[in-house]
């Protein structure tokens, strides 16, 4: 048993990382793009809320971008950014963006007119109103989007293995084949799934902490079709 466990966590040296190192690498490759996506999505979503006519075209563009398969996206980028981490992270950032924009727009729009009017009447400026009223109320929707984006991002990093071992935990899949060590495949799948579940749970916790006014656990989930374009 201990031998098996030892094998399980014995990472081939060509990957130049310990298991913990791979986990860290995986998280970095998965989470940095989501963060970048969120930073870009916030202003874009705000523009879409401000100028209603902008939203339908933005939505079409994001739907089309989302349809581009990850592997196709990766390989086209190789020509520009080489077989690097960046090549993996750029598409993931785009996918996150695409999931987050509709989530934020729907969330911010779900703030009722009366609430906004009340805030304005109390003398909130537009900026203050955005940060103190609209954004907090949109938090559940934004977190719901973040959950989908993060989980899908964590799953997709593995595909980076195909473009020159840029897949962090996904690289184990390749080594499992060449060294004929199936336990490495198990390791990759289980660790990735656990990471996804863990980060997902963490985001739920963040939502509960950020929105004490909502009943715990059962966040009312509005059907948001875009959110279901999840892992690919």
């Amino acid at each position: 048993m201990s031998d098996y466990l030892h094998d399980f966590f014995d990472i081939p040296s060509d990957l130049q990382h310990s298991w913990i190192g791979l986990v860290g690498l995986h998280l970095r490759e998965a989470l940095l793009p989501v963060a970048a996506g969120l930073l870009l999505a916030l202003p874009i979503a705000q523009l879409c809320v401000r100028f209603r006519w902008l939203y339908p075209p933005v939505l079409s563009v994001t739907t089309v971008l989302y349809a581009i398969p990850s592997l196709a996206f990766f390989v086209v980028l190789i020509d520009y950014t080489g077989q690097t981490e960046l090549t993996v992270m750029i598409p993931l950032a785009v996918y996150s963006l695409v999931v987050l924009v509709p989530a934020i727009v729907d969330g911010v729009r779900s703030v009722s007119e009366e609430t906004l009017a009340a805030a304005t009447a109390m003398g909130f400026g537009p900026l203050r109103r955005y940060f103190q009223v609209q954004l907090p109320i949109a938090v559940p929707a934004i977190i719901a989007g973040l959950r989908v984006a993060t989980v899908s991002s964590i799953s997709l990093v593995s595909v980076g293995m195909l473009i020159g071992n840029q897949g962090a935990l996904g690289n184990l899949l390749h080594d499992a084949q060449i060294y004929n060590r199936p336990e490495l495949t198990w390791n990759s799948v289980i660790t990735t799934a656990l990471l996804a579940i863990l980060v997902d749970a963490l985001l739920v916790l963040v939502r509960v902490l950020l929105t004490p006014w909502m009943p715990n656990g059962t966040a009312r989930r509005k059907p948001a079709p875009a959110l279901e374009d999840a892992a690919r």
Partner: peptide, 11 residues
């Protein structure tokens, strides 16, 4: 969603 499709494929 949490199950990585690529990993699952190889597995």
């Amino acid at each position: 969603r949490a199950l990585p499709s690529f990993g699952l494929l190889v597995l």
